[in-house]
């Protein structure tokens, strides 16, 4: 946690110092280009690596009844046996985080009246699911909203999303609900790691770092919009320059914007080598993306070498003389076999 905090703070300080010390070109032009290239190439390289890994078996880790006899009702989406049902399971997983919905929380009751002693109790725990869903969808909306800086003219669908997002018409510039909720959800996910002792025990640097990095990205972004406001007309000129591959002058860019851009670039650089790769990874999950038809279809491992069979008939042909000499029972006697 402390190491992750230190790393994120260091990145922020370096970017800030760089922006102030005349290295804005390095941080806001060179770094984003390098980051985008490494991000796209890195993700595809990892996808190819995964696609090359064989998945020999169906893995029937299910949350429901497998297809069986006619009078036993099959749980079609939790234990699919056809391609269509598997597609539904994948869609539910990707869009609604269905397996996270099954998250439970275990607790030891010391004086349980039923047991007259300690007992482990499992509660359904939906908070992680709620905030994970909130975080991912808010992030998506914020991501899409940023396209107003990358496109000219701004398409109507983005304007529509902005209108819906700022429907409450609170303040100027209008408060976007997605931005605020994004920060709330991230803070919940971080607090959960710190407060729940079991989760804290298994949390590592590579859990804290992306969370803190995202919090910094969101915080600098919100700050630029609501507090230390940046002149978005100038920023759009700069970003469109990047998108046209003819970067505009970095002179006069707000330091906060350079820091924001640096954080985003670091996120893109870090992405292909981290747990954030669950974005493409979810489509490669064998427990989700193959139908559980282990019982109705015979699966033969496709790369098994051809088997060397030695049947009993061949065995007897080979050793008949010796077996007859030893007085062992034979299916064909030597004189019969000779005919």
């Amino acid at each position: 946690m402390i190491a992750a905090l230190a790393m994120v703070a260091l990145i922020g300080c370096i970017a800030w110092a760089g922006a102030a010390g005349g290295l804005a070109f390095l941080f806001s032009v060179v770094l984003p280009y390098v980051a985008v290239i490494i991000f796209v190439v890195g993700v595809i390289r990892r996808m190819v690596y995964w696609a090359k890994s064989p998945v020999p078996f169906r893995i029937p880790t299910t949350g429901g009844q497998e297809a069986s006899l006619d009078f036993i009702k099959q749980e079609k989406w939790d234990c699919p046996c056809t391609k269509g049902q598997t597609v539904v399971r994948m869609l539910l997983e990707v869009l609604t985080f269905r397996s996270l919905f099954r998250n439970t929380h275990a607790e030891v009751l010391l004086n349980d009246p039923v047991n007259k002693g300690p007992r482990v109790v499992y509660y359904s725990s939906k908070w992680l699911w709620v905030f994970a869903l909130l975080f991912h969808y808010c992030f998506l909306v914020v991501f899409i909203r940023h396209f107003r800086f990358f496109m000219d003219p701004v398409p109507g669908c983005i304007t529509l999303i902005e209108t819906l997002d700022g429907l409450m018409q609170v303040g100027v510039p209008r408060f976007y609900v997605s931005g605020g909720l994004l920060l709330v959800a991230l803070l919940f996910l971080l607090t959960r790691r710190l407060v729940n002792e079991r989760v804290r025990y298994i949390s590592l640097l590579n859990d804290y770092f992306p969370l803190l990095l995202l919090i910094c990205i969101v915080a600098t972004g919100l700050c630029m919009r609501y507090f230390d406001k940046a002149d978005i007309a100038s920023i759009k000129v700069f970003i469109m320059g990047l998108a046209h591959l003819s970067p505009a002058s970095t002179e006069g860019l707000p330091s906060l914007f350079v820091v924001h851009l640096t954080f985003v670039s670091v996120l893109l650089l870090y992405f292909p080598f981290s747990k954030l790769m669950h974005m493409p990874g979810i489509f490669f999950s064998p427990t989700r993306n193959v139908p559980n038809d282990t019982r109705r279809v015979r699966h033969v491992n496709p790369w098994n070498p051809p088997k060397q069979f030695f049947t009993y008939a061949e065995y007897e042909d080979e050793y008949r003389e010796f077996m007859a000499d030893a007085g062992l029972p034979l299916e064909k006697q030597p004189e019969k076999a000779a005919e």
Binding site: V36, F147, V237, A243, L245
Partner: peptide
């Protein structure tokens, strides 16, 4: 999947490709 990913995440570049430079 890889093509969809690459196209989506490089969209700012190809959407603006060949257009005139953006002016304030």
């Amino acid at each position: 999947g890889a093509v969809i990913f690459a196209v989506l995440f490089s969209s700012p570049f190809w959407l603006n490709f060949g257009k005139d430079d953006y002016k304030r």
